[in-house]
Amino acid sequence: MEYINIFIKSAFIDNMVFTFFFGMCSYLAVSKTVKTATGLGAAVIFVLLITVPVNYLLETYVLKEGALAWLGDDYASMDLSFLSFIMFIAVIASIVQLVEMLVEKFSPALYGALGIFLPLIAVNCAILGASLFMQQKQFANIGQATVYGLGSGFGWFLAIVLIAAIREKIKYSHIPGPLKGVGMAFILTGLMGLAFLGFLGFEL
């Protein structure tokens, strides 16, 4: 139950795009067609599913105040949390690289579909944002953190596929010239955000 709640909350209520604007850059840049949007969205889910739990372990066993207690009593009072930004981003950058290599080696078909998007992801703020929120939310175990990563990724996937579908249709609409493209995409996202506000307070 707890897991379903975390999933729903991270995917719909605290949606990365609509409430926190995370990953907007690639969200706007890669949402011109549904096909590419699906590819990037899937890549984001994939990377979040791996990086959030890894960063959770890092946070719990290395960075948090007292986290080094397993090394012995001398280390029990160490607090390395000031290093969290740099460690998280390093983990993300290297995992993205690793995933790219693994996918290329073992599944060329998947690489063909996701490959070009993977490098983009290291600088997608949704990825770092999810890790930072994970740190703030203080999940009780790694399972919750994983579900949180999955939910956040799914929320992002949903957002980018939806906007891409709308943008494909809206090409044929009559929009004032200066508003075409990015301007309209912003306003559309705003409207979708309003719709997602309807999920507020939803709990199982």
């Binding site: 709640n5 939310k137 203080q138």
Partner: peptide, 11 residues
Amino acid sequence: YSRYVKPIMSK
């Protein structure tokens, strides 16, 4: 609250 109370309440 987040570490001990919340899990009890949701369980």
